[in-house]
């Protein structure tokens, strides 16, 4: 069907790989998706292999063919979520965007994706920290170098303002608080703050406020990012 095909195309743009065995890849992905959804519902601590195989509609044997244990599956789900959001951020920006604009666009796209799939946000800001608090190092490795490159190549900014590592922790706590209050559909309300956090380490407070305001206006008018 038309709809199905177009969504497949979009996914392959984000993850341009040619899987050797499509069947196995899909199974693996189904298990990862099941892990994400189960964690969102009952947290990693309470999730069992039984929960995952039931959700993914696969056998235990299949599960253990793909993953050594629950923890290994969780790690794969974290890696998948980081890559997924990274891809969404990259595809939201144009090469000619100024660094501050690019940051705003990338954050807006990521927030939209999280609102559509709050399980990803729950996994990355809640459970991932419960399982291994040092996971924040992985997020930073995925996100800070691209941001630094962006600012190094662009005009203006680039001088150190706030610590970008701190901004990550802040964003995590902000998103977690929205999830904990059971209102993930209100993620977009956090957009100005999250844009501020993404811009301020490199562009400084004034530029960050400017971008946060722009993000809020775009959000309010539903204008294109």
């Amino acid at each position: 069907m038309q709809k199905h095909r177009s969504s497949e195309t979009a996914a392959s743009v984000l993850r341009p790989t040619t899987p050797l065995d499509i069947g196995q890849q899909t199974q693996r992905q189904r298990i990862i998706d099941a892990m994400i959804e189960s964690c969102a519902e009952k947290t990693f601590a309470a999730t069992t292999i039984t929960d995952i195989v039931a959700r993914a509609r696969i056998s235990r044997t299949t599960f253990y063919k793909q993953f050594e244990d629950k923890r290994a599956c969780f790690e794969a789900a974290v890696d998948y979520s980081i890559e997924e959001l990274g891809g969404i951020a990259r595809s939201a920006i144009e090469p000619e965007d100024e660094p501050a604009d690019a940051s705003r666009k990338a954050v807006s796209a990521v927030v939209e994706a999280l609102a559509a799939r709050p399980g990803l946000a729950q996994l990355l800001t809640g459970d991932a920290f419960a399982v291994d608090p040092l996971v924040i190092g992985r997020y930073r490795k995925a996100m800070i170098p691209p941001l630094e490159t962006l600012w190094a190549n662009g005009n203006g900014g680039g001088k150190g303002h706030t610590d970008p590592r701190l901004a990550f922790g802040q964003a995590q706590v902000l998103i977690l608080s929205q999830i904990a209050s059971g209102t993930p559909e209100r993620f977009p309300e956090l957009l100005p703050e999250l844009v501020y956090l993404a811009v301020s380490p490199f562009g400084g407070h004034d530029e960050a406020i400017k971008q946060a305001r722009l993000a809020r206006e775009n959000e309010a008018t539903g204008a294109a990012r």
Binding site: P133, L166, F168, G169, Q170, Q172, V173, L174, S177, L190, P192, E193, Y196, L197, I209, A212, R213
Partner: peptide
């Protein structure tokens, strides 16, 4: 200027202490 500036302030402090 930001509606949730207090949330930012508390979360920043918390994240760094954490």
């Amino acid at each position: 200027e930001l509606a949730q500036a207090s949330t930012l302030a508390i979360s920043g402090t918390l994240a760094r202490i954490y």
